[in-house]
């Protein structure tokens, strides 16, 4: 099973994403019917009595209220542990905005295949500046700005409102503007630079977290210059080059693409044995 998942990362991920999309409606429906074992939105959920809060909103509340509200701190433990171990995997596997944005991007490419954005890894400073600005915004207005900019929370809460009240709020307009802008510009700027949820999660990434590594010695694309991995990346990053983090959200699309080629890319934790320098391996081969 595990190996099947690793071999078919994209299919598995699509299933997970679509399941989450469906759950956005199924869970509120069950709530209406009286089942309240799972409640909430991606702002905050409660599963079987265990509360989970989006870390970005936790920071916002702490900053606005200047109070260490203990239940709130406890509620971010699970997402933080997940981020520590697996990076921004929430964004790539669960976030409904990303799911919709990915499909929007695919649609755009289908309509005009020539407008593919050149894959490159932007400078890290852009991300940090953007994140800082967002939290400053909340403090300046002394108002929970982040709440309205958190697309996963916004979409799930709108889905819940649709089920509960049969109506949608104007907040949805924000989502439509953003996704339209992404399609027109052709860049996934929101997930990369703007999203406070992803930004916060990537702050907690460490060197030991799950990451994509590239083994240049195995890469077979160099000769033909097809670079399937770059084309596969939903965020138009270049996994063959350094500096994909903090932008990469470990979706595994590049690894999946590389399966058909040289298997030069892999998702690894730092301490894993496979992570060795290419030169060393060559030596071993010679010696062995």
């Amino acid at each position: 099973m595990k190996s099947w998942i690793l071999r078919n990362l994209t299919i598995t991920r699509r299933i997970a994403q679509l399941t989450i999309l469906a759950m956005m409606f199924i869970i509120p429906y069950l709530n209406v019917k009286g089942f309240t074992g799972v409640i909430g939105t991606f702002y905050s959920m409660e599963m079987m009595g265990i509360p989970i809060v989006d870390p970005a909103l936790c920071i916002q509340t702490l900053a606005l209220m200047r109070e260490l509200y203990v239940p709130l701190l406890l509620a971010v433990i699970i997402p933080l542990l997940a981020a520590l171990a697996l990076g921004r995997i929430f964004c790539s596997w669960a976030c409904p905005f990303n799911t919709l944005a990915e499909y929007a991007q695919m649609l755009r490419l289908k309509l005009s295949p020539n407008k593919r954005i050149q894959a490159h890894n932007p400078a890290q400073i852009g991300h940090y500046l953007a994140t800082l600005c967002l939290f400053m915004l909340a403090l300046v207005f002394t108002f929970p700005v982040i709440t309205f900019l958190s697309m996963p929370g916004l979409l799930t809460s709108q889905a819940a409102d649709l089920v509960f009240l049969g109506s949608l709020g104007l907040e949805l307009g924000l989502f439509l503007i953003i996704i339209l802008a992404e399609v027109v510009i052709g860049s996934r700027f929101w997930c990369k630079y703007a999203c406070p949820v992803g930004a916060t999660l990537s702050v907690f990434r460490t060197g030991a977290s799950l990451k994509v590594t590239f083994d240049a010695s195995k890469c077979t694309c160099q000769k033909t210059e097809i670079y399937d991995c770059q084309k596969a990346c939903p965020l138009s990053l270049n996994p063959r080059k350094k500096g994909i983090y903090p932008y990469c959200y470990n979706c595994g699309a590049c690894i999946d693409a590389c399966q058909r080629n040289g298997r030069a890319l892999s998702l690894v934790f730092i301490h894993q044995k496979e992570h060795v320098k290419p030169l060393q391996r060559k030596m071993e081969e010679v010696n062995g």
């Binding site: 939105t41 702002y43 002394t142 709440t147």
Partner: peptide, 10 residues
């Protein structure tokens, strides 16, 4: 309340 509430609908 306005500041604290994160509109989670719980």
């Amino acid at each position: 309340f306005i500041d604290r509430c994160i509109r989670c609908r719980k």
